[in-house]
């Protein structure tokens, strides 16, 4: 019913078929789902992509079976502090990183499997008043945390067995860092967004803060998802959670901004806005970016997918019969995961 109302207002007609249903899994534990992700998992010489689901008190690993079925293979119980999110770690295997806390992240743990001991385990990586944490390539984790006096920005090198091998402190800006993104193709370059609407650029090897620039948008507190450098310009994909429509800031979901790191000047390049919904305006709640596509959960309970380089909404997944979508994440190979609070996760090919 929702799809019927939604598709006629999409700019180029109905495009729900751009999302092809692949399979579904459902956690029947009855606990409220807080996040979903995927992880490469190697067992018995076979490496495969598995789904990870998180509730407040547990994190579960799901293995693909024949005929698009899924089986829960293990559950880590984390009863003391609630799980807030799963932190994806690119190019790692057999490791799941989770953030735990009450309103903010209080600690980060690695969940893994020890083949020597033939047992699942978890280990503490970091504690503190953590504002943002993002997994980087080559088993690195960057985080920002605050004490009363100062902010600490730190990169931890994780070991294969789930410990921390080494760390590097980055020079912290005064403003709180809310998100990080590696600059693709530049191993030592990292960007971050701040709560005061800035883009920060670091040298990961030296820890130097190279540049702090205005994010080039009046929407408050953007989050960075991807960054790449081309022809001397730094392109950053930003999202605007809970952005309200106003004269100064349109109803944006994602936004590609070009920065000249030499001058600090910026210009918005492509804007991706939520399609109008059947009940009026829809606003971006949360989302994820993979390659040149962005996916987001909107206030209507639908998931929308955009071509970020054209600013075009390419598909809309209406709320399911059992409820609204609450989470959306990309997995390798243009597979979209959409999760509901009741533990249902749908996998779609885009």
């Amino acid at each position: 019913d929702a799809a019927e109302h939604l598709t006629p207002v999409l700019p180029d007609g109905p495009r729900e078929e751009n999302l092809q249903f692949v399979s579904e899994l459902k956690d029947s534990s009855g606990s409220c789902a807080v996040d979903v992700s995927t992880v490469w998992w190697e067992a018995d010489g076979c490496r495969e992509l598995r789904v990870v689901t998180a509730s407040e008190s547990s994190v579960s690993l799901w293995q693909p079976l024949a005929h698009n079925h899924w089986a829960k293979t293990y559950t880590w119980q984390l009863a003391e502090i609630p799980v807030i999110q799963i932190i994806p770690l690119p190019d790692t295997c057999n490791l799941v990183c989770v953030a735990l806390g009450e309103l903010e992240i209080g600690e980060i743990r690695l969940l893994g499997y020890s083949s020597e001991a033939d047992s699942f385990k978890h280990s503490l990586v970091k504690t503190g008043n953590i504002k943002a944490a993002v997994g980087l390539k080559e088993q690195r984790l960057v985080s920002s945390s605050r004490t009363l006096q100062e902010q600490q920005v730190e990169v931890v090198l994780l070991s294969e067995t789930g410990g921390s091998k080494d760390w590097q402190t980055l020079m912290a800006p005064e403003e709180t860092v809310t998100a990080f993104a590696e600059v693709e193709g530049m191993r030592e370059a990292l960007v971050g967004t701040t709560a005061a609407n800035s883009i920060v650029v670091w040298n990961l090897q030296t820890g130097q803060l190279l540049r702090q620039m205005h994010a080039g948008c009046s929407c408050p507190a953007p989050l960075c998802h991807r960054a790449f450098s081309d022809s001397g310009l730094l392109f950053v994909v930003l999202s605007h959670p809970h952005a309200k429509e106003s004269e100064s800031c349109g109803n944006l979901a994602f936004h590609v901004v070009a920065f000249n790191p030499r001058t600090g000047r910026s210009r918005g390049v492509v804007f991706s806005s939520p399609p109008p919904g059947w009940g009026g305006r829809q606003v971006y709640l949360e989302g994820d970016v993979w390659d040149t596509v962005g996916a987001a959960v909107l206030t209507s309970g639908a998931v929308a997918v955009w071509d970020l380089l054209r600013g075009r909404c390419g598909a809309v997944l209406p709320p399911g019969p059992s409820g609204h979508w609450a989470l959306t994440r990309w997995a390798a190979g243009a597979v979209l995961l959409a999760g509901q609070r009741d533990g249902t996760v749908g996998l779609y090919r885009y």
Partner: peptide
């Protein structure tokens, strides 16, 4: 984006900013 919008562009911006930034 044209160069006039964003100012002079350098392909080596990362190395240049690293050399100029406080250690």
């Amino acid at each position: 984006c044209s160069e006039s919008d964003l100012g002079p562009i350098s392909l080596n911006w990362f190395e240049e900013l690293t050399a100029e930034a406080p250690p």
